[in-house]
């Protein structure tokens, strides 16, 4: 028992710094992915003539390829083009990768939620003199959010776990730190992975709870007892 406590105390500082790094990566991914995804999804949800097929192509490419491949391309291949704009350090590459990967899922969730709002809501707003933008902001999006949140929670949690992949471009996030500690204490491999897993859970669980709470708030008045 005291051995476990010793190991725990010995690895904790490193794992905690990895945890913070994971937290920052995940937040960056969530923010960029959501901003990009909500923008693209809002366009796609309304069948804008030129935008819809282009966004469709973007989604197919991103979702049809593994995240690891996308990350390698951003970090190893794009800099080879020699363009100064495409020279990324590992943090930037990881953030861009996570952001666009997340955006592909967020886009589909947002556009689906917008399309799920009955046409009559648009028509009523238009008939009252709302512009398209006001209709989106005041009528459509507030109703869509309740539909988006459960799926968004799933995507965000997937993203948090996917941050473990960016260790391949040299970021010392939680998983990378765990591996380093395993080299230090090869006899306690299960224990160290268990701590890492617990830390991921500590991050993911509140996200799911929070999303659940927000969903309840967003669907106030919309819940119909069946």
């Amino acid at each position: 028992m005291s051995h476990s406590v010793d190991i725990f105390l010995a690895v904790l500082p490193a794992l905690f710094s990895g945890f913070i790094e994971t937290l920052k990566l995940a937040l960056a991914g969530i923010v960029w992915g959501s901003v990009l995804g909500v923008g693209l999804g809002t366009l796609r949800g309304q069948y804008v003539r030129i935008a819809t097929p282009i966004i469709g192509g973007y989604l197919h490419i991103l979702r049809g390829t593994p995240f690891l491949v996308q990350l390698y391309i951003i970090y190893f291949v794009l800099p080879n083009t020699g363009w100064p704009l495409l020279q990324f350090d590992s943090w930037t590459a990881a953030t861009i990768g996570l952001g666009i990967y997340t955006s592909s899922y967020v886009t589909e969730i947002v556009s689906g939620a917008i399309r799920a709002i009955p046409r009559g809501q648009w028509e009523a707003a238009f008939a009252l003199g709302f512009t398209r933008l006001k209709t989106l902001r005041l009528i459509i999006l507030p109703q869509s959010i309740g539909l988006m949140l459960p799926s968004l929670g799933g995507v965000y949690v997937t993203l948090i776990k996917a941050t473990s992949i960016v260790s391949v471009v040299g970021i010392a996030e939680l998983m990378r730190q765990a591996e380093i500690q395993i080299v230090r204490f090869p006899g306690d491999i299960l224990f160290i992975y268990a701590i890492a897993g617990a830390l991921y859970f500590v991050f993911c669980f509140p996200v799911l709870i929070l999303v659940g709470k927000l969903e309840k708030r967003a669907t106030r008045g919309l819940q119909v007892r069946v």
Binding site: Q121, L128, I139, Q143
Partner: peptide, 17 residues
């Protein structure tokens, strides 16, 4: 223009939220 023309729909279309 539409602010001057009121419309009532078959399915009411009240804003549900």
């Amino acid at each position: 223009f539409r602010t001057r023309v009121g419309m009532v729909f078959q399915h009411f279309n009240l804003f549900l939220h």
